[in-house]
Simulated scan of single mutants.
Amino acid sequence: MSNTRRALFRSRWLPWALALPQLLVIFVFFYWPTGEAFYWAFTLEQPWGGGNAWVGWENFRNVFADTNYWNSVAASILYAAATTALAIAASLVLAMFVDRELKGSRGYCLALIWPYAIAAPAIGIIFRFVFDARSGVFSFLNAVSPGLWNPGLNGAQAMTMLVIAGAWQLVSYNFVFLLAGLQSIPRGLVEASAMDGAGPVRRMRDLQIPLLTPTLFFLVIINLTDSFTNSFALVDTMTAGGPAHATEIMVYRIYADGFKGLDYSGAAAQSIVLMLLVVALTFVQFRFVERRLHYK
């Protein structure tokens, strides 16, 4: 006989009353804005007011015909890929060191988790000062060779600065999952490989990383999605999309066109494209890549 207990409500309205606050939050902050975005993406506001007129796919055609938009797509892909690779690599190395239970490892663990609590605008301001060409840490490059470092004029340097800041923001999040994954690996396996003569690098490459594949797969998806959708604050505080649109990623371009250029319909169409891109990325990862992973 099963000992499983089930929660039963004598009143029919009580479960709905308990779920209503969450349902309202989902509707107000997800379904309603999504519906409004679809409405604006397929309509165009009349001059001097007077409501919106149905234009079908015209907004999407205008977006896809704009070369600057495709530049923002390329910048977004570059930023997301570089940020994800750097963040996961750095957090994996840090988790490996902390997992070895060296002296002071618990203190390092707490110190590595705390940065995740820092707001993105604050991170952007801090890194903007660090990479400042005149007074930041990197200003010594200009002392060696004047004009060598200037992210305000060099697009590649601005993107590099943005990628480092974005990766730093994600390291703490990745570190928690990777450390938990490392600690879930049976110690007997690690000790046996060490007794067979495998060094730390060999154990990491041939034993620990293969067993961390499900965790790494999860973090790749989360980091890519976060880089596409939650990087607005960093771009706004550090580069504002410049120089010459070099760091104008898709999420920032939506803001620039919608709130600065007042092209609400074009911005809505771009937001729909970004949403579909993230959905497609997640679908492809889970549908095709996950089949190649071994969880046991």
Score class of each variant (00 low, 15 high):
F138D: 00
I113G: 02
L110C: 08
N154A: 13
R134N: 15
G147F: 12
D66E: 14
I113N: 02
D132C: 05
V93T: 08
Y79H: 09
S91Q: 02
S135P: 00
G51F: 09
V171P: 05
G136R: 01
N68E: 11
V163N: 00
A111P: 05
V137P: 00
G181L: 05
G51M: 09
P115E: 04
L179R: 00
V137A: 11
W149H: 06
W57V: 12
A111G: 14
T160E: 06
W114I: 15
N154D: 15
M96A: 14
S145F: 07
S135T: 14
F60W: 07
M96H: 12
A74G: 13
W57T: 11
M161P: 00
A74E: 12
V55E: 01
N174R: 03
V130N: 00
V137M: 06
I118P: 01
W57E: 07
L153P: 03
S91Y: 01
W54D: 00
T160N: 15
A180H: 09
G50R: 12
N142C: 13
L148H: 04
G56N: 10
L162R: 03
S135R: 11
A95G: 05
A119C: 05
D132G: 03
V73D: 04
W57K: 02
Y173K: 02
S139P: 02
D66W: 15
W168G: 04
G104L: 08
A111V: 10
R100C: 06
R128T: 11
A81G: 09
A122Q: 08
A65F: 10
V137W: 07
R106N: 12
Q169Y: 09
N142P: 08
F60Y: 15
L86Y: 03
S139Y: 01
N68F: 13
G152V: 05
G104C: 10
S172A: 15
V171Y: 02
G136A: 03
Y108P: 06
L178Y: 06
A133I: 02
D132E: 05
F177H: 12
A180S: 14
Y173S: 02
L153H: 12
A81Q: 01
D99N: 15
G147E: 09
N52I: 06
T83K: 04
S135D: 05
A133G: 05
K103A: 11
A90H: 05
Y79L: 10
S172E: 09
L178G: 03
L94C: 14
W54N: 01
G56C: 13
G181N: 04
V171I: 15
F97Q: 11
A53R: 15
V63A: 12
Y108C: 14
I77G: 07
A117R: 07
I88S: 01
R100W: 09
I123N: 10
Y108K: 11
R128A: 09
I164V: 15
A87L: 04
W54S: 02
F175V: 01
I125F: 13
L162P: 02
V176F: 06
V176S: 06
Y69T: 13
A87C: 06
L182P: 04
V63C: 04
P121D: 05
L78H: 11
D132R: 06
F131G: 00
R106S: 13
A165M: 09
L178R: 07
W149N: 01
W57I: 11
F64N: 07
V171D: 03
G107M: 11
G136E: 00
A122K: 03
S91T: 07
